[in-house]
Design a binder for these strands. Structure first.
Lengths: 191, 191
DNA sequence: TAGAGTGATGACAGCAACTGACATCAACCG
DNA sequence: CGGTTGATGTCAGTTGCTGTCATCACTCTA
């Protein structure tokens, strides 16, 4: 048995999500989060670079899944198809923790700073996916475009998944958004 | 003649960009910015919600231009074409202040917090464009997708405009990114 | 098994971002 | 001419975040 309770990081994350839910992000101090987790403020900042970061621990796993899927796709597959498939896998992953995702999203939606952080996390995911595409030989610009497009599809599907009253499968919603995007671009100016 | 020097806001912006360029964002305090502008810290925070915001005053004008262009487009025009045209207009606007844009971008690129803020500004632009599209009758999901796609095109073109050694016309680069995106989506899975 | 690490945590001091409350005073207005 | 207004200053306080050093159960090694 260790000297301290185990899983400090997890306890901090749980405490933070609970407190943010109860009284909001701004009305919760780091000292309070740490106290509820049975730790001190200093320890909080050893695990998380800043107060917001405590809500974004899962981003790393998501990135690995996305990059892994792209890296593992057949060599001659269409890049956009590959990216969409990767986001479908990510959607499936999130779907398994829908309750957590909902509570977390409610907290984030209620605060501008947190929305900022979420947007930048998405941008980082896009950058990682773009890198993976370049490794497959996709050109500089195309890689960015495709990765950003993937994020756009994912965001649209995520909003639907969270907000729709009839709860449909998240990966299915990804596919639908993709179809919609193809319809949209097909309609635009033809040379 | 006023009681104070005019254009406090502008003086703060100029002082901030200069200081950030000299010693970096993190090594510059708000007190120093205010002092160089002949003002106090408190006044700085009356004009800007936070330290980063001093670099993003132009975002409002950009949004108005985008939204205005979308609102003013012919009623039956293809939504994606309309959005691309709006971003071409925005690109033309930025091109007129290339020097400023370059210095500003160098400062932003050097700091994570500032990159975060820039990403969220782009997200806000996307949201505004999406709203404008909905006003035109475009569906909820399609509006988000098209607006995000526009941002993706803009971002890719902006990177090229800033980084390429041969300086090409920004609006032209937008058009090229758009073409590339269409090529990419045309290549993906066909039903 | 003594003693030297090791690693997670605590204690404490301090900076800088940001805020609220109130004071100031030139310019303007009736 | 006196009152109001609006931009700015002053000051005190909270909180996010960091550097530094101490602590001490556990572990490894001689």
């Amino acid at each position: 048995m260790g000297r301290w309770e185990p899983d400090s990081r997890g306890r901090l994350e749980t405490a933070a999500l609970a407190l943010f839910g109860e009284r909001g992000f701004e009305n919760t101090t780091v000292v309070e989060i740490a106290a509820r987790a049975g730790l001190t403020e200093r320890t909080f900042f050893r695990y998380f670079a800043d107060k917001r970061e405590v809500l974004f621990g899962g981003a790393g796993a998501l990135r690995e899944l996305l990059v892994g899927t792209v890296d593992g796709a057949p060599e001659n597959a269409d890049p956009l198809d590959v990216v969409v498939a990767a986001f479908e896998a990510a959607a499936a992953m999130l779907q398994e923790r829908r309750e957590f995702a909902l509570r977390r999203q409610a907290v984030i939606a209620a605060n501008t700073e947190l929305r900022e952080r979420e947007v930048i996390k998405l941008a980082l995911l896009a950058a990682a996916v773009a890198d993976a595409l370049r490794r497959r030989g996709v050109s500089e610009t195309a890689a960015s475009l495709i990765a950003d497009t993937g994020i756009a599809i994912f965001s649209a599907a995520f909003a639907a998944w969270i907000n729709e009253t009839e709860h449909r499968e998240f990966p299915l919603l990804i596919r639908e958004s993709f179809d919609e995007l193809r319809a949209v671009t097909a309609g635009a100016t033809r040379p």
